[in-house]
Design a protein around this nucleic acid. Structure first.
Lengths: 186, 186
DNA sequence: GTCTATATCTAGATAGAC
DNA sequence: GTCTATCTAGATATAGAC
């Protein structure tokens, strides 16, 4: 693999585990076995430029992953269930941090517009996937959007709780409760 | 106010805004208008010792605040609604970060046992308040606990989304959707 | 495109005067 | 209990050889 891709891959993983400020440049370089000169050749504007590249990579990946589940399973409830099962598996493997993007930037104080825009983009893409399926299941456009946003908040919050508690219990719990949101009221 | 209390107050606010690693000691000192000597007199073990004190202060505060809402309003739905209204007000004022504790420690990489235990304590206290009310409304012990955990995840996630998007929309949305969880199925 | 060497700054922490 | 001065290690970033 070329160096730039390797940097992005390694940095993404580290940022997800420790946050942007929590990861030193040297740690990235050491893991990649490269030097500062090489890093700054690919990212002349330094660490934040690498962060943007990482967030874009995450955006691609989470969109693809979520779309896979929502294309494979016929209902929101089943797709969600399968997603949570996968997340619980990640928790067991110690790679659950790779499934959240907010924790990366929560230590940045104030976000630059560039970084925030990438985050807004990820947020939108996820919401649209959830929302479309819910609309297809008969919810109004407004309700579908609201449930989609709530799903995202619950997922992000549950992942953060799992990371803090070192346990997959929060994910197991929400998988039991979340389907309540997908039942159409009569 | 005595210096130690002032440090805790200032540091708590800064940690909530920028995360543990996101806040430099110098920033705390400058905001308090004190020197390193004074800081290390009160917290000989440094920044992490201050963090523990902050987390304990947060634990007191959030417990008191949530209990107020859950004692004042007769139902979970009304208490939750009032809480979210308050959070939306905080968002407008730019102080919404003060309502989350997970974002503080999400950039710490690996948590020390001391820090994690304080977090588990906060998590438990919040869950118990929610859970008790839900039980009183007729939910089983297990269901009440599950809904309580889901509420916490959704709140934390929504606050993180608000911080990232610089908008109170996620909170407004969940206030519309969350009541679905409190309706007893027949 | 990658290296070594270095510059500059700031982090957290300590020592000792008052 | 608070100050100033200082230490050391780490951070990000740069310069120039190969």
């Amino acid at each position: 693999m070329d160096t730039k891709s390797q940097i992005i891959e390694v940095a993404t993983s580290l940022f997800q585990q420790k946050g942007f400020k929590g990861v030193g440049l040297n740690e990235i370089l050491k893991t990649c076995n490269i030097s500062k000169g090489s890093f700054y050749h690919h990212f002349p504007n330094g660490k934040e430029e690498a962060l943007i590249a990482c967030l874009k990579a995450i955006s691609e990946k989470v969109t693809t992953d979520i779309e896979y589940f929502f294309n494979t399973y016929p209902t929101t409830e089943e797709a969600t269930q399968a997603m949570i099962d996968k997340l619980i598996e990640f928790e067991r493997e110690g790679t659950i941090a790779g499934s959240t993007f907010i924790s990366i930037i929560s230590d940045m104080g104030s976000l630059s517009d560039t970084v925030r825009n990438v985050c807004i983009d990820i947020y939108k893409k996820m919401r649209v996937i959830y929302s479309n399926k819910l609309e297809a299941e008969g919810f109004s456009k407004e309700d579908a959007r609201s449930i989609a946003v709530t799903m995202m908040a619950t997922f992000e919050g549950a992942i953060m709780l799992c990371l803090t508690l070192k346990s997959s219990d929060p994910l197991k719990t929400i998988s039991y409760v979340l389907p309540t949101l997908f039942k159409k009221a009569e």
